[in-house]
């Protein structure tokens, strides 16, 4: 069967327990059908199809909830992932401080060129805020990663965040393809998540981000 899409990107949601990763992926709406059956099993991943500048892009988005208590995410989760959302809770200082640890974990386990983005979630809870937007922005500048505050509860900036991350992955891929393959093949792009190989991260290759 012919491919029905142009790109397929595997994305991960990572961050401390309780920052709202699952809510970003899973709405846990108040309806009875969710409370009774689906929410007790929990969600593994979602597939979403978006249009990015005329290209049909499939996003496979994985929740890592339940894994984070091990302080690290196992290599299996990182395998083939092309984009990572680093999520903290703006009402939880510790979860913000831990973003640096998560970035280290990614550098040790994920592909060296994985795209990253930082999300400051729960920005609707302004009265409980412990981390200012400016500190979030500052951290993002330090690591040269994009940043946005989100509210999964109000669906604020969540879609924007996924589009931004997907667009950055696509741009990086097209650039890489041009570099390695100046004369483009006919038949279009066919990229699979599992073709991306994990590359060991050397300290030197990351120094631009340190």
């Amino acid at each position: 069967m012919a491919k029905t899409y142009d790109y397929l990107f595997k994305l991960l949601l990572i961050g401390d327990s309780g920052v709202g990763k699952t809510s970003i992926l899973f709405r846990f709406s108040e309806d009875a059908f969710n409370i009774s059956f689906i929410s007790t099993i929990g969600i593994d991943f979602k597939i979403r199809t978006i249009d990015l500048d005329g290209k049909k892009v499939k996003l496979q988005i994985w929740d890592t909830a339940g894994q984070e208590r091990f302080r690290t995410i196992t290599t299996a989760y990182y395998r083939g992932s092309m984009g990572i959302m680093l999520v903290y809770d703006v009402t939880n200082e510790k979860s913000f401080e831990n973003i640096k640890n998560w970035i280290r974990n990614i550098e040790e386990n994920a592909s060296a060129d994985v795209e990253k983005m930082i999300l400051g979630n729960k920005c609707d809870l302004d009265s409980k805020r412990q981390v200012s937007k400016e500190r979030g922005e500052q951290l993002a500048i330090e690591y040269q990663i994009k940043f946005v505050e989100t509210s999964a509860k109000d669906s604020l900036n969540v879609e924007y965040a996924f589009f931004t991350l997907a667009r950055d992955i696509k741009a990086k891929m097209e650039k890489k393809q041009e570099a390695s393959n100046p004369a483009p093949r006919t038949g279009g792009h066919q990229l699979r998540a599992n073709e991306q190989q994990r590359k060991p991260t050397s300290w030197l290759s990351r120094c631009s981000l340190l």
Binding site: M1, T4, I38, I41, D44, F45, I47, T49, K58, Q60
Partner: peptide, 14 residues
């Protein structure tokens, strides 16, 4: 036949 045929869908834990 292939999960990537879906436009939008969620999968629960097994």
């Amino acid at each position: 036949e292939n999960m990537y045929i879906f436009e939008n869908i969620g999968f629960t834990h097994p």
